[in-house]
Design a protein around this nucleic acid. Structure first.
Lengths: 211, 211
DNA sequence: GGGCAATTGTGAACAATGTAACACAATGCC
DNA sequence: GGCATTGTGTTACATTGTTCACAATTGCCC
């Protein structure tokens, strides 16, 4: 499968989108070239780390000059698979799910929510944004026919694992999980958890002395 | 200040809330005692790591038996500062901000949003949930008088850094940032970023081969 | 009340990650 | 066209994080 991938550390992959974002911003500001030094200042990290991260994937910079912003952006987008459009489906159209569907930050980055599901009879058939809410039974069909790669989970904690199991069965390979659980998935499926409560709970460790 | 804190690695602090959550669940399931083995199965991690993490803070288990769930929970809540209530204010009552205010996941964990701010004249004075939207000029007063420790940022990227600067000036020590930027803050201020787009963009790296 | 099975806490080995050092390619100035 | 400057790519080193292995302790059972 990923035989030719000389095992890039996951932390590195997690930082690449940061670079993409910073570079996009610099490009909009009209810059053409950037050094690892300058980029590091923006992102509050050492130039050495940026250079090392990038060197996992190739040689993108010119000694004495720095990196062509346009070129590096293209390369990074290619590496991350951000060139085409990614189709996602959402499960759970409660308050949170509706907010996610209406969130305007996904589309400009190439992520489109193309279907919404809910297990509740009351929700099925209603409209959220310009999506019709479908029953869970349609999931496998939609995933395969429409070509959905990503599942977004916005159901209560108690149902999250079940929903995730069904997404995986349907062939979904990436899951963005908003439910407050640490889900189990088989190898080969990528999960990213969005959990503001966990973030707050680790924050308070550092705050508690000065409350 | 934290002189007696023998430098606990941040990764460890990030995992503690996971333990709290798993233990809470186990407690609800009626269990009294849990071993690092069992806890590790739940959380998909090695027992050794759990024991090591906990050992940074003390000796909570009984050899041959495991950990008293109730006792360990109390200790962890104490360590993380989760015993009392934390008051937060929110800046930016657009779609995202409104969704955050209406999110029901914070209150049960002891986090209360007690004030909402917006820089737009149109928004000031309107109500979101049961909060009245205030002008930014009220920020320092509210933070100090009401005792707000946490700021939640839900403004567009372009305004995020400015808003964060003002929160910090007002004396806020912890920031939960929903804006798609990597903000700068002075030492002593803790930031946690919630950024689903970054999560998706790092996920696609692993998905791109099988799209 | 003593042996046994279970499970902790922890130092030491190992692995991963981050930082610093540096040789040298490209550039531009005089 | 030399020469100083800049900033990469890479290797070597330092730090941080994870896993292992086992002595020490506990509670149970007979």
């Amino acid at each position: 499968m990923n035989v030719m991938q000389p095992e890039v550390p996951e932390v590195v992959v997690l930082r690449l989108p940061l670079y993409v974002r910073a570079l996009t911003q610099l490009e909009r500001e009209g810059m053409n070239v950037v050094s690892s030094q300058q980029l590091g200042e923006r992102l509050q990290m050492t130039p050495a780390q940026i250079r090392k991260d990038l060197s996992y994937f190739g040689r993108f910079g010119k000694q004495g000059r720095g990196y062509s912003i346009q070129f590096l952006l293209e390369e990074l987008r290619e590496i991350l698979g951000l060139t085409g459009e990614w189709r996602a489906c959402l499960v759970g159209v409660g308050r949170l799910g509706r907010a996610i569907i209406n969130y305007t930050g996904f589309a400009p980055e190439g992520f489109t929510i193309v279907a919404a599901f809910d297990s509740s009879e009351n929700q099925v058939g209603t409209a959220v944004g310009d999506l019709a809410v479908r029953p869970m039974s349609h999931l496998p069909y939609v995933v395969n026919e429409v070509g959905v790669s990503i599942g977004i989970v916005a159901v209560p904690a108690a149902q999250a694992q079940t929903v995730i199991d069904r997404l995986v069965e349907s062939g979904i390979k990436g899951i963005l999980n908003y439910a407050p659980v640490a889900p189990y998935v088989p190898r080969g499926v990528v999960v990213r958890n969005i959990d503001p409560v966990l973030s707050l709970q680790s924050m308070t460790f550092y705050l508690k002395n000065e409350r």
